[in-house]
């Protein structure tokens, strides 16, 4: 059964399908969440929240593009970063409600995105990891601050004490190069 088929069953409130999705994705999503929160216990709690969100918001998944992998990874990232920010800036974050989840937690993927499935990605993992490891330390650090710490370009510039345009430039060059390398690895 493909990831897309599993999601379709989840959409039919099939709890066994949700369990199947958990079996497939829990390791990857937990690793990502734990990387962001650096707290195993909290990461487990957030992981369970992510699967509850999947259950509750399955209608937000686009079955036309059917990209389960990217949707789940970005959902987990958004949720973990939100928890991280709320824990570190209590009172400064907007109220967490249904509208907030729809706007800031549920990923909005492009209508033209190509489908990705975990099995296919894992089969290419070594090549993708090689491409990532070829980044310079500075490139890795900027990507790390943005993706795992949720810092904005201005925050990264302040943190690294470099001009904001330099940060923008570094991100554009890094992602551009990475895309070429990974596209080569995947294809």
């Amino acid at each position: 059964m493909t990831d897309g088929e599993v999601m379709l069953k989840v959409a039919g409130y099939d709890s066994q399908a949700l369990e199947e999705l958990y079996e497939r994705y829990s390791q990857l999503l937990f690793t990502l969440i734990n990387k962001i929160l650096d707290n195993r216990e909290l990461a487990e709690e957030v992981l369970s929240d992510v699967f509850v969100i999947i259950w509750q918001k399955i209608e937000k998944f686009d079955f036309k593009t059917n990209n389960v992998y990217t949707w789940l990874v970005l959902l987990a990232r958004n949720k973990a970063l939100d928890v991280f920010k709320r824990n570190n800036n209590p009172g400064l974050m907007p109220e967490y409600n249904d509208d907030y989840v729809n706007e800031f937690i549920i990923p909005k993927l492009s209508g033209s995105i190509a489908p990705l499935e975990l099995e296919k990605i894992l089969s290419k993992k070594t090549g993708i990891a090689d491409a990532l490891n070829k980044l310079t330390d500075a490139q890795k650090y900027v990507i790390d601050l943005a993706f795992y710490h949720g810092l904005k370009e201005d925050d990264i510039a302040k943190k690294l004490n470099i001009p904001a345009p330099t940060v923008k430039s570094k991100i554009q060059v890094t992602l551009g190069n990475l895309y070429k390398k990974i596209a080569t690895e995947i294809n």
């Binding site: 990387k35 492009s110 995105i113 990532l132 990507i143 895309y179």
Partner: peptide
Amino acid sequence: GQYQNLVAMLPLNLSLETPGAEVKANI
């Protein structure tokens, strides 16, 4: 879409960890 797929691959560089067995029960 291509860049969304690209950033979603970033966690593949991490060493995979397994969550506790109680997470499934919690869900």
